[in-house]
Design a binder for these strands. Structure first.
Length: 130
DNA sequence: ACGCTGACTATTA
DNA sequence: CTAATAGCCAGCG
């Protein structure tokens, strides 16, 4: 399809050389799965780690596609840059995301991650210096 | 084929 | 300080 090919072309451009995986989503999923339990990250951080500094929105779209992905993607550990559970509305129930995070030891206050910076997991940093 | 929307972020007023 | 706007890419009507 033209749309699929177009997507692949664009993604190939933003992706680092050597790895022209057209599956931007798959990369996002892989990174999200690397998020340790009790940690959270932001869309921008993931996008930046993949080389797409402006692909924050695409990361969100990837999460949308992560539904049914194998293995399961802990999308509940992905929040916006302010630690706000912007994607809670897209879960089976608006409380699923919060419940999952609280279950991992993360406190949620007013749909916001308490001590977000403290629980923040930087993919680039972890993957670059781990 | 064109335009709008969206799980974002950064900048400017 | 807070509020609004622009930039970004892909999916859908």
């Amino acid at each position: 399809m033209a749309t699929s090919r177009r997507r692949a072309e664009n993604l190939r451009t933003v992706l680092p050389s050597g790895k022209q995986e057209s599956d931007f989503f798959q990369q996002v999923w892989a990174l999200v799965r690397l998020i340790p339990r009790g940690r959270v990250t932001s869309y921008g951080a993931i996008a930046a780690s993949l080389g797409a500094k402006s692909g924050a929105r695409m990361v969100g779209w990837a999460m949308n596609s992560s539904h049914g992905a194998t293995p399961k993607v802990p999308a509940h550990r992905v929040v916006n840059r302010m630690g706000l559970l912007s994607g809670k509305n897209h879960f089976p129930t608006p409380t699923t995301m919060q419940d999952q995070l609280e279950k991992e030891g993360i406190k949620i206050k007013d749909d916001q991650v308490v001590d977000f910076e403290k629980h923040f997991w930087d993919p680039t940093k972890e993957l670059n210096n781990h």
